[in-house]
């Protein structure tokens, strides 16, 4: 299914009595089966946009449409993977992944079979009975991804799922994500602040400005599919990274100056 974000704006009341203009007239389209990334500096409103698209937050203006139909608080066919650690610590990997199936009212046997399938898909077979605190950060994040996949959404929405991981794990998990994406053919929107990750995975990358968050530019990543992380070594890849950094540098600089001013 296609995802359309049109004219979304959001302003927060700040604790100091002022306001934070987080998003300003953000519009973006993700076509059916496409892999799009949004990249932007820290604090530019990425998670805010994520929550609005996922229906956890309402926009001040604009709307989000799936296949041309506006979603006004209706249950949506969008699966979310959160930036923060989000596994349930009191549930095993198996029960974490089976959670959305439990909500859907599936019987124990059926939901465990399905959950096992998605656990295998993210490469966590053998860890079904482990609790999150017995796993590494990367494995926990894969558990969260498997859980969202088990929801079987037609649109997958991920907010910096690998932000807390080291670079190598992140690149390897990128391969895994691409492999799953090929298999499930889900329309995917990935939010990230990592340039390599954006180029490695996406068909298109949307660059966001620092506050208020706007879409500054959308860059088509014309690299061959299917891709693997080896592509990182290619000159073409480097060119895209350079291109994106040009766009991002100014925004990141503004963001940094802003947070330094606040700290000072």
């Amino acid at each position: 299914m296609a995802l359309t974000v049109s004219g979304v704006s959001k302003t927060f009341a700040a604790s100091d009595g002022g306001s934070v203009h987080a998003l300003d007239d953000v519009s973006l389209e993700v076509r059916e089966g496409e892999f799009v990334s949004i990249i932007g500096p820290s604090g530019c409103g990425k998670s805010t946009l994520f929550q609005i698209i996922g229906g956890l937050l309402t926009a001040d203006r604009g709307d989000v449409q799936v296949n041309g139909r506006a979603l006004n608080g209706a249950p949506r066919d969008i699966g979310m993977v959160f930036q923060e650690e989000s596994t349930f610590p009191w549930r095993t990997v198996l029960d974490n992944v089976a959670f959305p199936l439990e909500l859907a009212g599936l019987g124990k046997g059926e939901r465990e079979d399905k959950a096992r399938h998605f656990i295998r898909l993210v490469g966590l077979d053998g860890f079904e009975r482990k609790f999150p605190d017995e796993l590494s950060g990367g494995m926990r994040q894969r558990t969260a991804i498997a859980r969202t996949l088990a929801f079987q959404p037609s649109i997958l929405l991920m907010d910096e799922p690998f932000a807390s991981l080291d670079e190598q794990t992140r690149i390897l998990l990128g391969d895994k994500i691409l492999q799953i994406w090929r298999e499930l053919k889900q329309t995917t929107l990935l939010i990230t602040h990592n340039i390599t990750e954006a180029v490695q995975l996406s068909d298109r990358v949307a660059v966001m400005t620092y506050r208020p968050g706007r879409i500054k530019r959308v860059i088509e990543i014309d690299l061959p599919r299917p891709r693997s992380s080896e592509i990182i070594a290619s000159a073409e890849f480097g060119r895209y990274v350079g291109l994106l950094w040009q766009d991002l540098r100014e925004e990141a600089t503004r963001g940094m100056a802003d947070s330094e001013r606040k700290a000072g």
Binding site: G54, L56, P75, E84, S86, F99
Partner: peptide, 19 residues
Amino acid sequence: VLIDVARSFGASEREILRK
């Protein structure tokens, strides 16, 4: 965030409380 996870899967208030 754990409440958000449940909400994103369409959990009701009751389910959020219980689960």
